[in-house]
Design a protein around this nucleic acid. Structure first.
Length: 490
RNA sequence: GGACUCGUGGCCGAGUGGCUAGGCAGAGGUCUGCAAAACCUUGUACGGCGGUUCGAAUCCGUUCGAGUCCUCCA
Protein backbone atom coordinates (compact mmCIF):
# COMPACT_ATOMS: atom_id res chain seq x y z
CA UNK A 1 0.00 0.00 0.00
CA UNK A 2 2.29 2.76 -1.20
CA UNK A 3 -0.63 5.16 -1.27
CA UNK A 4 -1.35 4.50 2.37
CA UNK A 5 -0.62 7.56 4.48
CA UNK A 6 -0.44 6.97 8.18
CA UNK A 7 -0.67 10.06 10.33
CA UNK A 8 0.54 9.60 13.88
CA UNK A 9 0.46 12.06 16.74
CA UNK A 10 4.00 12.99 17.71
CA UNK A 11 4.24 13.92 21.38
CA UNK A 12 7.30 16.05 20.84
CA UNK A 13 5.70 18.35 18.28
CA UNK A 14 2.16 18.01 19.54
CA UNK A 15 0.88 17.41 16.05
CA UNK A 16 -0.31 14.59 13.88
CA UNK A 17 2.49 13.92 11.43
CA UNK A 18 2.75 11.80 8.35
CA UNK A 19 4.71 8.71 9.27
CA UNK A 20 7.65 8.21 6.94
CA UNK A 21 10.31 5.67 7.81
CA UNK A 22 13.86 6.92 7.98
CA UNK A 23 14.97 3.94 5.96
CA UNK A 24 11.98 2.68 4.00
CA UNK A 25 10.75 -0.05 4.12
CA UNK A 26 12.43 -0.70 7.45
CA UNK A 27 10.88 0.62 10.63
CA UNK A 28 12.45 0.61 14.07
CA UNK A 29 10.14 0.84 17.05
CA UNK A 30 11.09 0.84 20.72
CA UNK A 31 8.54 0.56 23.51
CA UNK A 32 9.12 0.68 27.25
CA UNK A 33 8.20 -2.71 28.60
CA UNK A 34 7.32 -3.91 32.07
CA UNK A 35 9.31 -3.89 35.26
CA UNK A 36 9.12 -7.50 36.27
CA UNK A 37 8.70 -7.33 39.99
CA UNK A 38 4.98 -8.02 40.11
CA UNK A 39 2.04 -9.25 38.12
CA UNK A 40 0.88 -7.18 35.17
CA UNK A 41 -2.34 -5.28 35.73
CA UNK A 42 -4.93 -3.74 33.46
CA UNK A 43 -2.80 -0.63 33.11
CA UNK A 44 -0.02 -2.71 31.58
CA UNK A 45 -2.37 -4.12 28.97
CA UNK A 46 -2.91 -0.74 27.41
CA UNK A 47 0.56 0.04 26.03
CA UNK A 48 1.05 -3.62 25.14
CA UNK A 49 -2.12 -3.66 23.04
CA UNK A 50 -1.70 -0.15 21.64
CA UNK A 51 1.74 -0.84 20.28
CA UNK A 52 0.80 -4.35 19.29
CA UNK A 53 -1.80 -2.83 16.98
CA UNK A 54 0.70 -0.30 15.67
CA UNK A 55 3.20 -3.12 15.09
CA UNK A 56 0.57 -5.20 13.31
CA UNK A 57 -0.61 -2.30 11.20
CA UNK A 58 2.86 -1.24 10.12
CA UNK A 59 3.53 -4.80 9.03
CA UNK A 60 0.16 -4.98 7.33
CA UNK A 61 0.90 -2.02 5.10
CA UNK A 62 4.16 -3.61 4.09
CA UNK A 63 6.89 -2.27 6.34
CA UNK A 64 9.61 -4.49 7.72
CA UNK A 65 9.37 -3.70 11.39
CA UNK A 66 11.83 -4.42 14.14
CA UNK A 67 9.93 -4.00 17.37
CA UNK A 68 12.01 -3.83 20.53
CA UNK A 69 10.27 -4.00 23.89
CA UNK A 70 12.50 -4.23 26.89
CA UNK A 71 12.19 -6.06 30.17
CA UNK A 72 13.32 -3.91 33.05
CA UNK A 73 14.92 -6.13 35.61
CA UNK A 74 17.37 -3.83 37.36
CA UNK A 75 17.85 -0.41 38.66
CA UNK A 76 14.49 0.82 39.87
CA UNK A 77 13.84 2.32 43.21
CA UNK A 78 10.96 1.95 45.58
CA UNK A 79 8.52 4.78 45.57
CA UNK A 80 8.36 4.93 49.32
CA UNK A 81 11.63 3.22 50.05
CA UNK A 82 13.65 4.40 52.98
CA UNK A 83 16.75 5.05 50.95
CA UNK A 84 16.77 4.39 47.27
CA UNK A 85 16.77 0.66 47.30
CA UNK A 86 16.56 -1.40 44.16
CA UNK A 87 12.97 -2.53 43.79
CA UNK A 88 13.82 -6.01 42.71
CA UNK A 89 16.46 -6.46 45.34
CA UNK A 90 14.04 -5.45 48.04
CA UNK A 91 11.44 -7.94 47.01
CA UNK A 92 14.11 -10.59 46.80
CA UNK A 93 15.06 -10.10 50.39
CA UNK A 94 11.49 -10.18 51.52
CA UNK A 95 10.79 -13.38 49.74
CA UNK A 96 14.14 -15.04 50.26
CA UNK A 97 14.68 -15.58 46.59
CA UNK A 98 17.37 -14.82 44.12
CA UNK A 99 16.55 -11.58 42.28
CA UNK A 100 16.83 -13.32 38.95
CA UNK A 101 14.41 -15.94 40.15
CA UNK A 102 11.81 -13.27 40.67
CA UNK A 103 12.63 -11.74 37.33
CA UNK A 104 12.14 -15.10 35.65
CA UNK A 105 8.90 -15.79 37.48
CA UNK A 106 7.23 -12.52 36.64
CA UNK A 107 8.60 -12.44 33.12
CA UNK A 108 6.98 -15.80 32.45
CA UNK A 109 3.72 -14.61 33.90
CA UNK A 110 3.85 -11.44 31.85
CA UNK A 111 4.39 -13.47 28.71
CA UNK A 112 1.44 -15.69 29.56
CA UNK A 113 -0.80 -12.63 30.00
CA UNK A 114 0.40 -11.19 26.71
CA UNK A 115 -0.30 -14.43 24.94
CA UNK A 116 -3.81 -14.51 26.38
CA UNK A 117 -4.36 -11.00 25.08
CA UNK A 118 -3.08 -12.11 21.68
CA UNK A 119 -0.24 -9.59 21.87
CA UNK A 120 2.49 -10.59 19.44
CA UNK A 121 5.98 -11.10 20.75
CA UNK A 122 8.26 -8.21 19.91
CA UNK A 123 11.13 -8.84 17.53
CA UNK A 124 13.61 -8.42 20.35
CA UNK A 125 12.92 -8.36 24.07
CA UNK A 126 16.17 -7.28 25.69
CA UNK A 127 16.77 -7.24 29.42
CA UNK A 128 18.52 -4.40 31.16
CA UNK A 129 20.63 -6.83 33.16
CA UNK A 130 21.97 -8.30 29.94
CA UNK A 131 23.19 -4.95 28.69
CA UNK A 132 25.30 -3.61 31.54
CA UNK A 133 28.34 -3.36 29.29
CA UNK A 134 26.45 -1.31 26.71
CA UNK A 135 25.16 0.98 29.43
CA UNK A 136 28.62 1.52 30.90
CA UNK A 137 29.92 2.32 27.45
CA UNK A 138 27.07 4.78 26.96
CA UNK A 139 27.91 6.55 30.22
CA UNK A 140 31.55 6.82 29.17
CA UNK A 141 30.53 8.65 26.05
CA UNK A 142 28.35 11.05 28.01
CA UNK A 143 31.20 11.77 30.42
CA UNK A 144 33.63 12.22 27.56
CA UNK A 145 31.33 14.79 26.00
CA UNK A 146 31.22 16.65 29.27
CA UNK A 147 27.68 15.97 30.37
CA UNK A 148 28.33 13.51 33.17
CA UNK A 149 30.19 13.91 36.43
CA UNK A 150 31.41 11.36 38.94
CA UNK A 151 30.75 11.81 42.60
CA UNK A 152 31.59 9.25 45.22
CA UNK A 153 31.36 6.30 42.88
CA UNK A 154 28.12 7.41 41.27
CA UNK A 155 27.74 9.17 37.94
CA UNK A 156 25.19 11.92 37.38
CA UNK A 157 23.92 13.73 34.35
CA UNK A 158 24.59 17.46 34.37
CA UNK A 159 21.23 18.83 33.31
CA UNK A 160 22.18 22.48 33.65
CA UNK A 161 25.23 22.04 31.47
CA UNK A 162 23.16 20.14 28.93
CA UNK A 163 20.56 22.85 28.88
CA UNK A 164 23.12 25.45 27.88
CA UNK A 165 23.32 24.02 24.39
CA UNK A 166 20.25 21.86 24.24
CA UNK A 167 16.70 21.94 25.42
CA UNK A 168 15.98 19.90 28.50
CA UNK A 169 12.20 19.72 28.75
CA UNK A 170 11.52 19.66 25.04
CA UNK A 171 9.22 16.66 25.34
CA UNK A 172 7.38 17.45 28.53
CA UNK A 173 7.13 21.20 28.11
CA UNK A 174 9.11 22.02 31.19
CA UNK A 175 11.85 24.52 31.61
CA UNK A 176 14.80 24.47 33.94
CA UNK A 177 13.81 27.54 35.92
CA UNK A 178 10.58 25.93 36.93
CA UNK A 179 12.36 22.74 37.83
CA UNK A 180 14.68 24.68 40.09
CA UNK A 181 11.80 26.32 41.86
CA UNK A 182 9.59 23.32 42.08
CA UNK A 183 11.80 20.43 42.96
CA UNK A 184 11.29 19.21 46.45
CA UNK A 185 14.14 18.64 48.81
CA UNK A 186 14.82 14.97 49.16
CA UNK A 187 17.25 12.89 51.06
CA UNK A 188 20.30 11.46 49.35
CA UNK A 189 20.63 14.32 46.94
CA UNK A 190 23.81 15.82 48.37
CA UNK A 191 26.00 14.22 45.74
CA UNK A 192 24.25 15.96 42.89
CA UNK A 193 25.08 19.43 41.69
CA UNK A 194 21.43 20.11 41.13
CA UNK A 195 18.32 18.40 42.36
CA UNK A 196 17.12 17.72 38.84
CA UNK A 197 20.30 15.94 37.80
CA UNK A 198 19.68 12.26 37.38
CA UNK A 199 21.82 9.22 37.96
CA UNK A 200 23.58 7.40 35.16
CA UNK A 201 25.35 4.99 37.48
CA UNK A 202 24.64 4.44 41.12
CA UNK A 203 27.07 3.03 43.64
CA UNK A 204 25.53 0.06 45.39
CA UNK A 205 24.70 0.22 49.05
CA UNK A 206 25.32 -2.90 51.13
CA UNK A 207 21.68 -3.96 50.87
CA UNK A 208 21.74 -4.02 47.08
CA UNK A 209 21.90 -7.54 45.85
CA UNK A 210 22.02 -6.72 42.16
CA UNK A 211 25.38 -5.14 41.42
CA UNK A 212 27.94 -4.97 38.69
CA UNK A 213 31.49 -3.82 38.35
CA UNK A 214 32.12 -0.56 36.55
CA UNK A 215 34.90 2.01 36.16
CA UNK A 216 33.31 4.07 38.95
CA UNK A 217 32.07 1.61 41.55
CA UNK A 218 30.33 -1.64 42.11
CA UNK A 219 26.78 -0.62 41.47
CA UNK A 220 23.96 -0.55 38.99
CA UNK A 221 22.93 1.57 36.03
CA UNK A 222 20.66 4.58 36.27
CA UNK A 223 16.99 4.34 35.68
CA UNK A 224 16.73 5.89 32.28
CA UNK A 225 19.80 4.46 30.70
CA UNK A 226 18.73 1.03 29.59
CA UNK A 227 16.30 2.32 26.99
CA UNK A 228 18.87 4.65 25.45
CA UNK A 229 21.51 1.96 25.34
CA UNK A 230 19.34 -0.88 24.08
CA UNK A 231 17.45 1.28 21.63
CA UNK A 232 20.71 2.34 20.08
CA UNK A 233 22.12 -1.17 20.07
CA UNK A 234 19.22 -2.75 18.22
CA UNK A 235 17.71 0.11 16.24
CA UNK A 236 20.63 2.41 15.59
CA UNK A 237 21.50 5.92 16.74
CA UNK A 238 18.35 7.27 15.16
CA UNK A 239 15.17 5.27 14.82
CA UNK A 240 11.54 5.81 13.89
CA UNK A 241 9.20 5.32 16.81
CA UNK A 242 9.53 5.32 20.56
CA UNK A 243 6.44 4.43 22.53
CA UNK A 244 5.32 4.16 26.10
CA UNK A 245 2.78 5.36 28.63
CA UNK A 246 2.03 9.03 29.24
CA UNK A 247 3.37 8.71 32.74
CA UNK A 248 6.81 8.06 31.31
CA UNK A 249 7.09 11.36 29.50
CA UNK A 250 8.76 13.00 32.42
CA UNK A 251 11.28 12.31 33.63
CA UNK A 252 11.99 9.02 31.90
CA UNK A 253 11.68 9.92 28.24
CA UNK A 254 12.98 13.42 28.78
CA UNK A 255 16.10 11.91 30.28
CA UNK A 256 16.40 9.44 27.45
CA UNK A 257 16.43 12.30 24.97
CA UNK A 258 19.09 14.12 26.98
CA UNK A 259 21.22 11.00 27.22
CA UNK A 260 21.14 10.31 23.51
CA UNK A 261 21.86 13.89 22.59
CA UNK A 262 24.68 14.02 25.12
CA UNK A 263 26.21 10.81 23.80
CA UNK A 264 25.64 11.18 20.07
CA UNK A 265 24.74 14.81 19.58
CA UNK A 266 21.48 13.85 17.94
CA UNK A 267 17.94 12.97 18.86
CA UNK A 268 17.53 9.24 18.72
CA UNK A 269 13.81 9.27 18.16
CA UNK A 270 11.88 10.71 15.29
CA UNK A 271 8.39 9.98 16.47
CA UNK A 272 7.27 9.78 20.11
CA UNK A 273 4.00 8.01 20.74
CA UNK A 274 2.39 7.94 24.18
CA UNK A 275 -0.63 5.98 25.21
CA UNK A 276 -2.85 7.36 27.92
CA UNK A 277 -3.66 5.63 31.18
CA UNK A 278 -6.38 3.37 32.38
CA UNK A 279 -8.22 4.97 35.24
CA UNK A 280 -10.46 3.51 37.89
CA UNK A 281 -12.95 5.85 39.48
CA UNK A 282 -11.22 8.55 37.49
CA UNK A 283 -7.82 7.84 38.98
CA UNK A 284 -4.75 6.29 37.43
CA UNK A 285 -4.56 2.56 38.01
CA UNK A 286 -1.17 1.87 39.47
CA UNK A 287 0.78 -0.21 41.82
CA UNK A 288 1.67 2.67 44.08
CA UNK A 289 -1.94 3.78 44.48
CA UNK A 290 -2.90 0.21 45.21
CA UNK A 291 -6.02 0.44 43.08
CA UNK A 292 -4.97 -2.01 40.42
CA UNK A 293 -6.56 -5.19 39.15
CA UNK A 294 -4.12 -7.75 37.77
CA UNK A 295 -4.81 -9.32 34.42
CA UNK A 296 -5.07 -12.73 36.02
CA UNK A 297 -7.76 -11.35 38.31
CA UNK A 298 -9.64 -9.86 35.38
CA UNK A 299 -9.54 -13.17 33.53
CA UNK A 300 -10.65 -15.13 36.59
CA UNK A 301 -12.97 -12.56 38.15
CA UNK A 302 -11.23 -12.92 41.48
CA UNK A 303 -11.10 -9.36 42.72
CA UNK A 304 -13.59 -7.53 44.86
CA UNK A 305 -13.89 -4.79 42.25
CA UNK A 306 -15.08 -7.26 39.63
CA UNK A 307 -18.64 -8.47 39.22
CA UNK A 308 -17.54 -11.30 36.97
CA UNK A 309 -14.62 -12.64 34.94
CA UNK A 310 -13.85 -11.00 31.62
CA UNK A 311 -12.09 -12.86 28.85
CA UNK A 312 -8.81 -11.56 27.43
CA UNK A 313 -10.58 -10.78 24.17
CA UNK A 314 -13.14 -8.69 26.05
CA UNK A 315 -10.30 -6.74 27.63
CA UNK A 316 -8.66 -6.27 24.26
CA UNK A 317 -11.90 -5.11 22.69
CA UNK A 318 -12.54 -2.80 25.64
CA UNK A 319 -9.15 -1.16 25.22
CA UNK A 320 -9.54 -0.83 21.45
CA UNK A 321 -12.89 0.88 21.87
CA UNK A 322 -11.06 3.93 23.16
CA UNK A 323 -8.45 5.94 21.32
CA UNK A 324 -5.00 5.27 22.75
CA UNK A 325 -4.43 8.96 23.42
CA UNK A 326 -7.29 9.40 25.85
CA UNK A 327 -7.84 8.06 29.31
CA UNK A 328 -9.99 4.98 29.58
CA UNK A 329 -12.06 4.47 32.67
CA UNK A 330 -12.50 1.00 34.04
CA UNK A 331 -15.90 -0.15 35.23
CA UNK A 332 -17.82 -3.39 35.23
CA UNK A 333 -20.50 -1.76 33.09
CA UNK A 334 -17.97 -0.77 30.46
CA UNK A 335 -16.36 -4.22 30.42
CA UNK A 336 -19.74 -5.89 30.19
CA UNK A 337 -20.75 -3.58 27.36
CA UNK A 338 -17.54 -4.51 25.54
CA UNK A 339 -18.21 -8.20 26.10
CA UNK A 340 -21.69 -7.96 24.61
CA UNK A 341 -20.60 -5.76 21.75
CA UNK A 342 -17.81 -8.12 20.80
CA UNK A 343 -20.15 -11.13 21.00
CA UNK A 344 -22.61 -9.46 18.67
CA UNK A 345 -19.88 -8.67 16.21
CA UNK A 346 -18.58 -12.23 16.32
CA UNK A 347 -22.01 -13.71 15.77
CA UNK A 348 -22.46 -11.64 12.65
CA UNK A 349 -19.04 -12.70 11.35
CA UNK A 350 -20.01 -16.32 11.98
CA UNK A 351 -22.79 -16.17 9.41
CA UNK A 352 -20.67 -14.80 6.59
CA UNK A 353 -20.11 -18.26 5.16
CA UNK A 354 -23.84 -18.89 5.14
CA UNK A 355 -24.77 -15.75 3.20
CA UNK A 356 -26.60 -16.21 -0.07
CA UNK A 357 -24.53 -14.95 -2.99
CA UNK A 358 -26.42 -12.86 -5.51
CA UNK A 359 -25.53 -11.68 -8.98
CA UNK A 360 -25.33 -8.12 -7.81
CA UNK A 361 -24.40 -6.44 -4.62
CA UNK A 362 -26.46 -3.70 -3.05
CA UNK A 363 -23.63 -2.83 -0.72
CA UNK A 364 -20.16 -1.71 -1.73
CA UNK A 365 -17.80 -3.35 0.70
CA UNK A 366 -14.81 -1.61 -0.81
CA UNK A 367 -16.07 1.63 0.65
CA UNK A 368 -16.09 -0.02 4.07
CA UNK A 369 -12.56 -1.19 3.49
CA UNK A 370 -11.48 2.31 2.63
CA UNK A 371 -13.12 3.65 5.78
CA UNK A 372 -11.22 1.03 7.79
CA UNK A 373 -7.92 2.25 6.40
CA UNK A 374 -8.95 5.87 6.89
CA UNK A 375 -9.65 5.18 10.54
CA UNK A 376 -6.28 3.62 11.21
CA UNK A 377 -4.42 6.17 9.14
CA UNK A 378 -5.89 8.90 11.30
CA UNK A 379 -3.66 8.34 14.31
CA UNK A 380 -4.60 4.70 14.75
CA UNK A 381 -8.22 5.46 15.53
CA UNK A 382 -9.41 2.02 16.60
CA UNK A 383 -12.78 3.20 17.99
CA UNK A 384 -13.67 4.55 14.57
CA UNK A 385 -12.48 1.33 12.99
CA UNK A 386 -14.73 -0.65 15.32
CA UNK A 387 -17.62 1.67 14.47
CA UNK A 388 -17.05 0.90 10.79
CA UNK A 389 -16.94 -2.80 11.57
CA UNK A 390 -20.30 -2.43 13.32
CA UNK A 391 -21.66 -0.91 10.13
CA UNK A 392 -20.32 -4.01 8.39
CA UNK A 393 -22.11 -6.13 10.98
CA UNK A 394 -25.33 -4.33 10.22
CA UNK A 395 -24.90 -4.96 6.52
CA UNK A 396 -24.19 -8.64 7.09
CA UNK A 397 -27.38 -8.96 9.09
CA UNK A 398 -29.42 -7.19 6.46
CA UNK A 399 -28.04 -9.49 3.78
CA UNK A 400 -28.85 -12.45 5.97
CA UNK A 401 -32.44 -11.23 6.23
CA UNK A 402 -32.65 -10.76 2.47
CA UNK A 403 -33.00 -6.99 2.68
CA UNK A 404 -29.66 -6.38 0.99
CA UNK A 405 -27.64 -8.46 -1.47
CA UNK A 406 -24.02 -9.37 -1.94
CA UNK A 407 -22.15 -10.80 -4.91
CA UNK A 408 -19.08 -13.00 -4.96
CA UNK A 409 -16.65 -10.13 -5.42
CA UNK A 410 -18.01 -8.17 -2.50
CA UNK A 411 -18.14 -11.30 -0.39
CA UNK A 412 -14.44 -11.75 -0.83
CA UNK A 413 -13.87 -8.11 0.10
CA UNK A 414 -15.99 -8.67 3.18
CA UNK A 415 -13.91 -11.66 4.16
CA UNK A 416 -10.80 -9.60 3.60
CA UNK A 417 -12.10 -6.91 5.92
CA UNK A 418 -12.81 -9.38 8.68
CA UNK A 419 -9.58 -11.31 8.44
CA UNK A 420 -7.52 -8.21 7.77
CA UNK A 421 -8.87 -5.66 10.21
CA UNK A 422 -10.62 -7.70 12.87
CA UNK A 423 -8.18 -10.59 13.14
CA UNK A 424 -4.87 -9.49 11.75
CA UNK A 425 -4.62 -5.84 12.73
CA UNK A 426 -6.83 -5.49 15.78
CA UNK A 427 -5.72 -8.95 16.86
CA UNK A 428 -9.18 -10.00 17.92
CA UNK A 429 -10.16 -13.65 17.91
CA UNK A 430 -13.69 -14.84 17.39
CA UNK A 431 -14.04 -17.28 20.21
CA UNK A 432 -17.65 -18.20 19.60
CA UNK A 433 -16.64 -20.11 16.51
CA UNK A 434 -13.57 -21.63 18.07
CA UNK A 435 -15.06 -23.01 21.26
CA UNK A 436 -17.72 -25.19 19.69
CA UNK A 437 -15.40 -27.35 17.68
CA UNK A 438 -15.79 -30.69 19.38
CA UNK A 439 -17.11 -33.52 17.29
CA UNK A 440 -18.47 -35.66 20.09
CA UNK A 441 -20.32 -32.80 21.72
CA UNK A 442 -21.63 -31.68 18.35
CA UNK A 443 -23.05 -35.13 17.69
CA UNK A 444 -24.43 -35.39 21.17
CA UNK A 445 -26.21 -32.07 20.82
CA UNK A 446 -27.55 -32.98 17.41
CA UNK A 447 -29.19 -36.04 18.93
CA UNK A 448 -30.61 -34.10 21.83
CA UNK A 449 -31.97 -31.35 19.62
CA UNK A 450 -33.53 -33.98 17.35
CA UNK A 451 -35.30 -35.57 20.31
CA UNK A 452 -36.45 -32.19 21.50
CA UNK A 453 -37.71 -31.30 18.05
CA UNK A 454 -39.83 -34.44 18.07
CA UNK A 455 -41.21 -33.55 21.45
CA UNK A 456 -42.14 -30.10 20.16
CA UNK A 457 -43.80 -31.57 17.09
CA UNK A 458 -45.91 -33.68 19.44
CA UNK A 459 -46.65 -30.59 21.49
CA UNK A 460 -44.90 -32.22 24.40
CA UNK A 461 -43.63 -28.86 25.65
CA UNK A 462 -42.92 -30.23 29.10
CA UNK A 463 -40.16 -32.44 27.69
CA UNK A 464 -38.88 -29.71 25.39
CA UNK A 465 -38.66 -27.24 28.23
CA UNK A 466 -37.11 -29.82 30.52
CA UNK A 467 -34.25 -30.39 28.05
CA UNK A 468 -33.73 -26.71 27.56
CA UNK A 469 -33.82 -25.87 31.27
CA UNK A 470 -31.58 -28.70 32.36
CA UNK A 471 -28.91 -27.93 29.80
CA UNK A 472 -29.16 -24.27 30.60
CA UNK A 473 -28.11 -25.11 34.14
CA UNK A 474 -24.75 -26.30 32.78
CA UNK A 475 -24.50 -23.25 30.51
CA UNK A 476 -25.54 -24.96 27.30
CA UNK A 477 -28.12 -22.60 25.85
CA UNK A 478 -30.69 -23.64 23.27
CA UNK A 479 -32.36 -21.05 21.09
CA UNK A 480 -35.29 -21.78 18.81
CA UNK A 481 -35.30 -19.96 15.50
CA UNK A 482 -37.41 -20.34 12.46
CA UNK A 483 -34.66 -22.43 10.84
CA UNK A 484 -34.63 -24.82 13.77
CA UNK A 485 -32.90 -24.80 17.12
CA UNK A 486 -29.29 -23.92 17.67
CA UNK A 487 -27.10 -24.12 20.73
CA UNK A 488 -24.01 -22.58 22.21
CA UNK A 489 -21.97 -22.80 25.34
CA UNK A 490 -22.18 -19.71 27.47
C1' G B 1 2.08 26.17 43.69
C1' G B 2 4.01 25.01 38.35
C1' A B 3 3.64 22.19 33.52
C1' C B 4 0.26 19.49 30.67
C1' U B 5 -4.38 17.03 29.60
C1' C B 6 -9.49 16.50 29.95
C1' G B 7 -14.88 17.79 30.98
C1' U B 8 -19.94 14.90 25.22
C1' G B 9 -26.89 11.91 25.99
C1' G B 10 -28.45 6.73 31.78
C1' C B 11 -23.14 4.46 31.11
C1' C B 12 -18.58 3.78 28.00
C1' G B 13 -16.58 6.42 24.16
C1' A B 14 -15.51 8.99 18.82
C1' G B 15 -15.69 13.50 16.34
C1' U B 16 -15.66 18.53 15.10
C1' G B 17 -16.86 25.68 12.83
C1' G B 18 -23.02 24.21 9.57
C1' C B 19 -24.00 17.37 7.53
C1' U B 20 -26.38 10.07 11.91
C1' A B 21 -20.22 8.37 15.31
C1' G B 22 -20.33 3.52 17.42
C1' G B 23 -21.25 0.23 21.58
C1' C B 24 -24.07 -0.98 26.20
C1' A B 25 -28.52 0.04 28.74
C1' G B 26 -33.81 1.88 27.94
C1' A B 27 -38.31 2.11 24.64
C1' G B 28 -41.17 0.20 20.37
C1' G B 29 -41.48 -3.73 16.76
C1' U B 30 -40.46 -8.61 13.97
C1' C B 31 -39.98 -13.72 15.12
C1' U B 32 -42.01 -17.38 18.58
C1' G B 33 -45.97 -22.95 22.00
C1' C B 34 -43.37 -20.30 25.80
C1' A B 35 -38.66 -18.37 26.96
C1' A B 36 -34.26 -16.63 25.48
C1' A B 37 -31.58 -15.03 21.65
C1' A B 38 -31.29 -12.63 17.17
C1' C B 39 -32.70 -8.76 14.01
C1' C B 40 -35.08 -3.93 12.80
C1' U B 41 -36.51 1.00 14.53
C1' U B 42 -35.67 4.80 18.19
C1' G B 43 -32.69 9.06 21.60
C1' U B 44 -30.85 14.75 19.77
C1' A B 45 -25.85 15.28 24.28
C1' C B 46 -21.51 18.22 24.17
C1' G B 47 -19.49 21.65 32.51
C1' G B 48 -20.95 27.31 33.70
C1' C B 49 -20.50 32.40 31.89
C1' G B 50 -18.96 35.79 28.22
C1' G B 51 -16.92 36.74 23.16
C1' U B 52 -15.69 35.92 17.68
C1' U B 53 -19.01 34.23 13.56
C1' C B 54 -24.36 34.24 9.03
C1' G B 55 -23.74 29.86 12.26
C1' A B 56 -19.90 26.86 17.93
C1' A B 57 -20.42 21.32 21.31
C1' U B 58 -16.19 22.49 17.84
C1' C B 59 -12.29 28.90 17.82
C1' C B 60 -10.96 32.81 21.88
C1' G B 61 -11.34 34.50 27.02
C1' U B 62 -12.86 33.35 31.76
C1' U B 63 -14.71 30.22 35.59
C1' C B 64 -15.79 25.64 38.00
C1' G B 65 -14.50 20.50 38.25
C1' A B 66 -11.34 16.14 37.33
C1' G B 67 -6.71 13.87 36.19
C1' U B 68 -1.35 13.06 35.07
C1' C B 69 3.48 14.72 36.00
C1' C B 70 6.60 17.85 38.84
C1' U B 71 11.38 11.81 43.07
C1' C B 72 17.39 8.62 42.46
C1' C B 73 9.50 4.26 40.30
C1' A B 74 9.21 2.27 34.32
Amino acid sequence: METNQLYLYNSITGKKELFEPINNPYVGMYVCGPTVYGDAHLGHARPAITFDVLFRYLKHVGYKVRYVRNITDVGHLENDADSGEDKIAKKARLEQLEPMEIVQYYTDRYHANMQDLNVLSPSIEPKASGHIIEQIEFIERIIKNGYGYVENGSVYFDVLKYNEKHNYGILSGRNIDELINNTRTLEGQEEKKNSFDFALWKKAQPQHIMRWNSPWSVGFPGWHLECSAMGEKYLGEVFDIHGGGMDLKFPHHECEIAQSVAANNKHAVKHWVHNNLITINGQKMSKSLNNFITLDEVFSGKNALLNQAYSPMTVRFFILQAHYGGTLDFSNEALLAAEKAMARMCKAFDVIDKLVISNTSSIDFNSYKKRCYDALNDDLNTPILLAVLFDVVKSINLIKEGKETIDAVNLSVLKEIVSGFFNEILGLINQSSVSTKSNSIDTLMEVILELRKNAKTNKDYATADYIRNKLSEVNIKINDTKDGANWFIE
